[in-house]
Amino acid sequence: MTYKEIQELINLVAKTNLSEVKLINGDFKLIIRSKEFSSGKAVQVVAPAPASQPATQVAVAPPVSTEPAISTVTEKTVQPTVPSTGGNYIEIKSPMVGTFYRASGPDKPAFVQVGDNVSKGQRICIIEAMKLFNEIESEVSGKIVKVLVDDSTPVEYDQPLFLVDPAG
């Protein structure tokens, strides 16, 4: 996308009541979020563009005051897409960059499996960062619907790890 096209899209989204618009085209992903969605202040622009794209630093003038402020985020599509079926699932996200482990050791059972019910505060995985092993606790109660990351693989900050059905 060109700078102009991104700008036009932002303006278009600002005029609607949409809280978030995602555009995915191959490796390129653009997310435009309204102020209500991100609860960010004023205009926030983060553009770590993928290598194949020119690094576009989008500086957008704030829309007129009655309209929601917009934040845009472009990022490489690394997260598995969340299945849209089945309603209101909650994503448990990684609080840090690191390596994702489903068990406390190679010969140990996984903390949780798909179909398991977890309660808030229950240990669900380990993320290792710089030789510190962090036990991640579930912030919600519900049923594990999907494990979104393979064992022993790298994860990014805020990357969804589990999909939980709070009604499960």
Binding site: P95, K131, L132, F133, N134, E135
Partner: peptide, 13 residues
């Protein structure tokens, strides 16, 4: 050898 295990809650250790 040093080994560290943390428990997290939200954004705090």
């Amino acid at each position: 050898g040093i080994l560290i295990n943390n428990s997290l809650q939200g954004m705090y250790i």
